[in-house]
Amino acid sequence: MQVLIVEDDERVADLIRRGLEEEGFQVELAPDGLTGHRMAHAKTYDLLILDIILPRLNGLDLCQQIRKSQPEVPIMMLTALGTTDDKVEGFDAGADDYLVKPFDFRELFVRIRSLLKRHAKRPQEALLTLADLQLDQRTRTVWRAGQEIELTPKEFNLLEYMLLNQGRVLPRTEIADRVWDMPFDTGTNFIDVYINYLRKKIDRDFTPKLIHTKSGIGFILKEG
C-alpha cells in the first residue's frame, strides 16, 4: 500500500511514517502543498493524508484539486483545526475522513484501515434509484427529474448510503460511523448540516420529497 503524507511538521510526519511502515505501508512525504500536488499527480497512491495548514498551497485547496482528477482516491485530513465548521470545510473539499491533532496513532491506524476497506468494497458501475432520483456510482453523478445535481464528495457519499438503505430509518450514530467513519459527537450537528445541504439540492425544488426526519431517531430516504 502506497501512502503520501503532506505535512510540514517534520516530527509529526516522521511519527506517522514510522508507524505506518511498521504496519507494512510504503510511505512518501511532502513538506508543502505544492510538492504534495506534484507528487499526487506523478503516481498513484492508495491513500493521501493531508494537513490543512500547509505552506505554498493549503490542504483544502490541495484536496479539491486532487479530487478533480482522482475522485476515488481515499483522502484523510489530519489537522489541528477541530471545530464543526472546520470539519464541514474539510469534507466539502473532498476528504473522506477527518482526524484532529493531537491524535493517538492507534486511532489513526484503525481509521486508515477502515477507510481503505470501505473504498475497496465500494460497488462499481451501479445505478441507484428512488422515484426520479438517480445516482451513478461509476461516474459519481446525481440526477433528479432529468436534471443533473452537483454534490460535494461527502454529500454524494451520504446520499449514496441513504439510497443503499432506502426505506430504513438511519440513526445519526450509524450515519457518522458508516459515512464519516467516526463516532457520533452529540455536541456537534454536522450530520444535520449535511442532511440540510442534501434537502436543498435534491428535495427543495422537486416532488415528492424524499428525505424525511424521524424525530429523536434519525433520517429516512423514501418516496412520499
Rank of each mutant, 00 (worst) to 15 (best):
V3T: 04
V3Q: 09
L4F: 02
L4N: 01
I5F: 05
E10Y: 09
A13R: 06
L15S: 04
R17D: 00
R17Y: 02
R18T: 06
G19C: 09
L20Q: 06
E21T: 00
G24S: 10
F25Q: 03
V27R: 12
A30G: 00
A30M: 09
P31Y: 11
D32S: 10
G33C: 09
G33T: 02
T35Y: 06
G36E: 07
R38I: 00
R38V: 00
R38Y: 02
M39E: 07
H41A: 08
H41K: 12
A42H: 01
D46Y: 08
D46W: 05
L47C: 05
I49M: 12
P55M: 07
C63D: 06
Q65G: 01
I66C: 11
P71Y: 07
V73W: 13
M76P: 01
M77V: 15
M77S: 04
T79P: 04
T79D: 07
T83M: 04
D86K: 08
D86L: 05
K87Q: 15
V88R: 15
E89S: 14
E89C: 07
F91W: 14
D92F: 12
A93I: 01
G94S: 09
G94R: 11
A95H: 08
A95E: 09
D96L: 08
Y98I: 03
V100G: 05
P102I: 04
F103K: 13
R111N: 09
R111I: 02
I112E: 10
R113C: 03
L115A: 01
P123Q: 10
A126Y: 09
A131R: 14
D132R: 15
D132Q: 14
D132P: 05
L133F: 12
Q137T: 12
R138W: 05
T139D: 14
R140W: 07
T141N: 10
A145T: 04
G146Y: 13
E150D: 11
E150F: 10
P153D: 06
P153E: 10
K154E: 06
E155I: 07
L158E: 09
L158V: 10
L158I: 10
L158R: 08
L158A: 05
L159Q: 03
E160F: 13
E160C: 13
E160H: 15
M162Q: 06
L163I: 00
L163K: 04
L163G: 04
V169W: 11
V169F: 10
L170M: 15
L170H: 03
R172P: 03
D177Y: 12
D177A: 15
M182Y: 10
N189G: 08
F190M: 13
F190G: 00
Y194I: 05
Y197Q: 05
L198V: 02
L198Q: 03
R199M: 08
R199F: 12
K201I: 02
T207P: 03
H212C: 08
I217H: 11
G218C: 07
I220R: 13
G224I: 00
